[in-house]
Design a protein around this nucleic acid. Structure first.
Lengths: 205, 205
DNA sequence: GAATTAAGTTGAAGTCGTTCACTTTTGTAG
DNA sequence: CTACAAAAGTGAACGACTTCAACTTAATTC
């Protein structure tokens, strides 16, 4: 028997997260009121805080869903990388970018990023940073994979180049979410311009 | 005649900024109460808001002092760059890093960064982003200068490489301020590891 | 199945950044 | 010197996240 209490608990948590996504998207993260969100989930304000430590933690839970999906897609690509160094790196990265607005608005990304910088020691801050790290590791893994197939010069440390490229794409993604007017294409072209020269230089000719 | 009103105004603004730096450093930015800061500056809470639009704006005013100094030092270096590509880039960047804790604590950096991401359209957010851009431009200027002296391959776009390197150092600096325990040396060595391979590849041999 | 304990819910109160209607001070004109 | 206008200062009130002491409800024991 699942237990009434356990079922109620799971149901409430789900309702709260659903209500949060709905409210955040409808009103924006900042303008979303915990009270409204609680009402929509049919619980009290206190109960929301029983399930999530803060408004930010609810947000990071949504970010985590997003990033987990993207990581899974990326892992498939690393397991079977395109031949071109250029294409391999950019396909991977554009995969991140193109999925990024599936559940989250730019505003939601901004607040999640800000939270992770502002409060790096909170559970939500840590969690965000950890997701970032896993993305960085995946870029490094891609470079290592390309070294295995002989596409990338074997004398380079994949960690250094991977981190460099990830840091760059992360910063450009930050610029992207900071500017509501910037379309994905501009992000693509900027990151291409910065990634391609490196791809060319690290490739075996 | 300077005018009593103008003098009092300038004096109050100075007192508020001074009180802010003192209070932020003593208690930390988050724990600093506007009320305490106002009391220390011998004005009312309302007057603080008469001079600065928000708590964050006071913080960014301090950041700006810091960055302006660093930019000036960097400009001197770009005007007369070291011969080595390696040394030129790392000296410039380490100059940024080593000055970064002169007026600001790591916590203050974190809140300033968070603010600029969270609220990119506010005056303070814009101001921070603009300072960042000027730093990025300076890295690009250094690469352009090294192309002029023939140290860097002339076929590369200095903007793309400069932005890439700046994005990397900025992200690593963010990681540095997120971790209270990380010493400057680790930041140096991480950025060296990521910058050196690129420096080697873009240098004329 | 009544009593007891443990787990979870509730919303009013607390905190702190920010605003605004009112007061005070400075500058100016008659 | 008085009266008026403009500028600046003030702090109580407000809004929104978060906490917590009191209350319900589920589980367990006898």
């Amino acid at each position: 028997m699942a237990g009434l209490r356990a079922r109620q608990k799971a149901d409430r948590e789900r309702r709260i997260l659903e209500a949060a996504v709905t409210t955040f998207r409808a009103k924006g993260y900042r303008a979303a009121r915990i009270e409204e969100l609680a009402h929509r989930a049919e619980v009290s304000v206190g109960t929301v805080y029983n399930y999530y430590q803060s408004k930010g933690e609810i947000l990071v839970a949504v970010v985590a869903m997003e990033v987990e999906e993207v990581l899974a897609a990326g892992a498939a690509m690393v397991a079977n990388p395109p031949e071109d160094v250029d294409a391999a790196l950019l396909d991977l990265v554009f995969g991140y970018f193109d999925h990024s607005l599936k559940y989250l608005s730019k505003e939601m990304w901004r607040f999640a990023m800000a939270l992770s910088i502002e409060s790096p020691q909170t559970p939500s801050g840590r969690r965000y940073t950890e997701l970032d790290q896993r993305l960085a590791d995946q870029v490094t893994a891609m470079i290592a994979a390309l070294q295995k197939t002989g596409e990338v010069r074997p004398d380079l440390a994949p960690g250094a180049i991977g981190t460099l490229l990830f840091n760059n794409l992360n910063q450009e993604f930050t610029a992207f979410v900071k500017d509501e007017a910037m379309p994905l294409e501009i992000l693509h072209s900027r990151v291409s311009a910065q990634t391609r020269p490196v791809a060319r230089m690290i490739a075996t000719r």
